[in-house]
Design a protein around this nucleic acid. Structure first.
Lengths: 146, 146
DNA sequence: CTGGATGCAAACTCTTTGCATGCAT
DNA sequence: ATGCATGCAAAGAGTTTGCATCCAG
């Protein structure tokens, strides 16, 4: 396992501080879901996060994972990504990046590309939207499915 | 209604030709779903398309609408757009455009903005993907919800 | 005729909600 | 002590599948 104890304590205190700033409680579920999510360091479904947490803290429920990941989104720690099908992924908001999804097997990969989104942002502004987030998803067949 | 009979016959023959080219059958459901979809001329859910078709051809079922819209996607007539939540929208592929979705009320609007997606396309190519489609979705609060 | 397309219903997946219990504050 | 957070279960939304019937080719 590549996880370091120092990462955990750093992550723990970051999350604790963010929660306290909003007057929300610091629970072991939130801390451990946070650790698992940051260790995955990858777009992950609620199910995947649960699988990563369960060995360390049993009896964590899927609804709690959903609620917690959505809390992370509010805290700016995670982004929601709707990948192709109805599945929702949560992505640790590291640097701006985008995604490709295989239209056959559903696999999602990161795309490192610098795209100038300002025309879209200002178009949204003209429409009356306060655009907070931009999500670019390409789709096609991956090398395996082709 | 703004629909013109000429549009219908044009659309009908376009679709008929595309279907025959692929050895697929030209059915009244497909023709009428196609008309309704083109008349809507807007990102629409399967439910909306069904509502538009039903007055003209009763007993059309939702599964048929899904299958037909997905067929349109294969034919290049429609694009699938996953708008924020798990809902799937089908968008008539007119010109390249993108979308904003309100994160509170879920409303989806078109965004006319010319974005240079080539960096993402080539990044996808490097990953082994044959990228066929690009979908940019911004999210935020619309003027009503703000 | 004959097989692909349709309608109906049911299954399926993923996500959200309601409520009693528990724990952080 | 107080009430937000959790776990469980069940509901809910949206989409897909199975199968008998129907109709375009």
């Amino acid at each position: 396992m590549t996880a370091k104890a120092t990462d955990n304590t750093t992550w723990d205190s970051e999350l604790s501080r963010a929660l306290r700033d909003r007057g929300q409680r610091v629970t072991s579920q939130r801390l451990l879901i946070h650790r698992a999510f940051r260790e995955l360091d990858h777009h992950a479904s609620a199910e995947e996060v649960l699988a990563a947490v369960s060995p360390r803290l049993p009896n964590v429920s899927l609804p709690t994972v959903y609620a917690t990941l959505d809390l992370f989104r509010e805290l700016g720690i995670a982004r929601r990504v709707s990948a192709g099908r109805g599945a929702i992924l949560y992505d640790p908001r590291s640097e701006a990046h985008h995604h490709v999804v295989c239209r056959r097997c559903g696999k999602v990969e990161d795309l490192e590309a610098r795209i100038d989104l300002s025309p879209a942002m200002s178009a949204a502004g003209r429409r009356g939207y306060a655009a907070e987030n931009a999500e670019l998803v390409l789709s096609g067949l991956c090398s395996d499915c082709r």
